[in-house]
């Protein structure tokens, strides 16, 4: 088994954990964390794919771009979580979506 394959397995494992998290968690902060895990797995896969196809620079630069965008997502997501908690007193998504009207 070469390095690329090992890294790929790790990447899929990370993304899988992230996806599982998104499937089951209801806490808004945990959602952000799961999303981060998912994206980090994808980033790892990107870099590994760059290595495998011989275009290392392309994979890395793409990954870096995603890192920037992803950081913004995390920051805004956490800020929203803080505000939601302050306004409605809960972070439970199920309760939040029942707060219509």
């Amino acid at each position: 088994m070469d390095t690329v394959e090992i890294v790929m397995i790790g990447a899929f494992a990370l993304a899988g954990v992230g996806l599982y998290g998104l499937l089951v968690v209801r806490n808004l902060i945990k959602v952000v964390v799961s999303l981060q895990l998912l994206v980090k797995g994808v980033l790892l896969a990107l870099v590994a794919a760059g290595k495998a196809s011989g275009q290392v620079a392309l994979g890395e630069s793409l990954a870096l771009t995603v890192v920037v965008a992803d950081t913004v997502v995390a920051v805004i997501g956490l800020a929203v979580a803080v505000q939601v908690r302050r306004v409605s007193g809960t972070l439970d998504l199920k309760k939040l979506s029942n707060l219509r009207g």
Partner: peptide, 13 residues
């Protein structure tokens, strides 16, 4: 369209 995150992720999966 329930708006529930978990269901949407299930759909994506």
């Amino acid at each position: 369209q329930t708006g529930r995150l978990n269901w949407n992720v299930l759909g994506i999966l």
